[in-house]
Lab assay of single mutants.
Amino acid sequence: MAAGGDHGSPDSYRSPLASRYASPEMCFVFSDRYKFRTWRQLWLWLAEAEQTLGLPITDEQIQEMKSNLENIDFKMAAEEEKRLRHDVMAHVHTFGHCCPKAAGIIHLGATSCYVGDNTDLIILRNALDLLLPKLARVISRLADFAKERASLPTLGFTHFQPAQLTTVGKRCCLWIQDLCMDLQNLKRVRDDLRFRGVKGTTGTQASFLQLFEGDDHKVEQLDKMVTEKAGFKRAFIITGQTYTRKVDIEVLSVLASLGASVHKICTDIRLLANLKEMEEPFEKQQIGSSAMPYKRNPMRSERCCSLARHLMTLVMDPLQTASVQWFERTLDDSANRRICLAEAFLTADTILNTLQNISEGLVVYPKVIERRIRQELPFMATENIIMAMVKAGGSRQDCHEKIRVLSQQAASVVKQEGGDNDLIERIQVDAYFSPIHSQLDHLLDPSSFTGRASQQVQRFLEEEVYPLLKPYESVMKVKAELCL
C-alpha cells in the first residue's frame, strides 16, 4: 500500500493539533497551500530580480507567473513527485505547466533550498508574528487579574506546605514575570531571523556568478533584492546548502521555554482548584465526569500541561538535527523538520489560546482563602504575639514557653481530632496574655502579614508589564474561544 493518505478522510490519521486544537490561522501558515504558494512567490521574486539585473526574462513571463501564483494543481504535483521522487522539481514542473512561456526560467540558477529553506524562514517569521500578540493578550488578562487582587491576602506555599502570606495578585505576578520573559525572547528570536537568500547549491553562489558572467556586484544585488522582497532586513552571508540548523534550535528553545512557563502556571491553577481557592472557567453544560456528576475538573489547565510537556520535548529534535548536518548538509534534517517545526508552533498556539481562555474567566473564592488563612495564621502570628507581650512588660522566655504549650495543644486538636485551630481562643482565655487581649485582632490582621506584596504588584505592572504590552494595544480586544 502506498504511503500517505487522504487526510480529510475519517479513515486516515490526522494530527489532533490540526484537527482538534490549533487555530485556523496557525494551521494555514503550515498548510501545503501556504507552503507551495510561497515557493511560487519566491520563484517570481527571483525572476523579477534577475530581470532587473539584466537576464533575458520578459515582462510577459513575469506576468504569467504572477497570474498563476494561486493556480496550484495539487493532484498534478503529487503525481509528479511520485514520478520524480523530488518535491521541488515536482512543483517546478507543475508551475511550468500553467506558465508555459515562463517554464524555462522558473528556478533559474537556484537549488531546492532556495524555495525550501527560504519558505521555512518566512513561515517561522509569520508563525512567530501570530504567537506574539496571543502571548501579549494572556499577559494582559493576567495583569488585569493581578491588579484587581493585588491586596487580597492568601496563604503562600513553599514545598506545598503553608508559608508566609502573600497576595493573590502577587502570586499571579510570578506567572506574568515568566511570560514577559517569554514574550521578550519570542520577539528577540523573531527579529534575529535572517533570510537564507540566493546562495546556490553549497552556499557559494557559483551558479549565479556564472549567470551574471562573473559580476560579483550583481550577485550581491540579486541576494539583497530577493531578501528585501521577502520582507527581511538581512540575509546570511555564510550558508551551506541550507541555512544553519542552529536557527531551528533557537526558535524551538524559546517555544519550549514558553511551554515550561505555561505548565507551571496551569499546575498552580490545578492545585488551587483542589484547594477550592480558584477555578478555571466551567461552562453551564460542561460535564466533569461521566460517573461523578459533582466533579469540576480543571480540564483546560490539564490540557495545557499535557501539550506543554510535548512542546518542551520537541527542542531535542533540532538539537540532534543540527549535530548531524555533515559538511554542507545531509538530508537527516528533512523529514524531522517537516514534523517538529509545525508541531512546535501548533502546540504553542494551542496552549496560548487555551491559557487566554482560562485567564479571561478565572474565578476566585475569597471566603475559602480566608478560612485557610484562619487555619494557619495563628501559628504564624506567634512571633508577633511574643513581641507584643514583651512590649507590655512580659518575659520573652516565659511567653515563648506559654505559646509553645498552647500551640501544641491547638495542633493536637487540628491533627488528632480534625478540629479547627483554636490557638487564639486559648490565648484569649489565658490570664497571662490579658495585657494584649485587646491587640489580638490587630495582630491577626492578614494584611499585616503580606509585606509589600501589593506595592510590588503595582510597581511591576507599571514599570515592566504595561510598557512591554504597549506595541500590542491594537490587538488586545480579541477574545479566545474554545470549541473543545
Rank of each mutant, 00 (worst) to 15 (best):
A2Y: 15
G5F: 11
S23I: 05
F30A: 02
R40F: 00
E60F: 08
N71W: 10
D73M: 04
F74Q: 13
F74N: 12
F74S: 13
E79Y: 14
E80T: 13
R83Y: 13
H86N: 00
F95E: 00
C98P: 08
C98E: 12
C98K: 12
A102W: 01
G104H: 15
G104C: 14
I106N: 02
L108A: 14
A110G: 15
V115L: 13
G116K: 00
D120P: 01
A127G: 12
L131S: 11
L131R: 00
P133F: 12
P133I: 13
K134N: 15
I139R: 02
R141S: 15
E148T: 09
L155N: 01
G156I: 04
G156N: 00
T167R: 02
T167C: 04
K170G: 01
R171C: 00
W175S: 03
D182N: 00
L186P: 00
L186M: 13
L186I: 13
R188P: 01
V189N: 11
G197Y: 01
K199I: 02
T201N: 02
T202C: 11
Q205K: 01
F208W: 01
Q210V: 09
Q210I: 09
D215G: 08
L222Y: 00
L222V: 12
G231I: 01
R234E: 11
Q241T: 00
T242R: 00
Y243M: 08
D248S: 02
L252Q: 04
L252N: 12
S253C: 13
V262T: 13
H263E: 03
K284G: 14
I287T: 13
S289I: 01
S290F: 03
N297K: 01
M299K: 04
M299P: 11
S306M: 05
L311N: 00
D317I: 03
Q320S: 08
V324C: 15
V324L: 10
E328I: 05
R329N: 05
N336P: 04
T350E: 15
L352T: 04
N353Y: 04
L355T: 09
E360G: 09
P366R: 08
R374S: 10
L377V: 07
T382M: 15
I385Q: 06
A388L: 07
A388K: 04
G393Y: 08
R396G: 05
D398W: 07
H400Q: 04
R404F: 06
Q409K: 12
A411T: 13
E425H: 13
I427E: 06
H437R: 11
D441T: 08
D445E: 12
S447A: 13
R452Q: 08
R452E: 07
S454V: 15
Q458L: 12
L468W: 09
K477A: 10
K477R: 14
E481P: 14
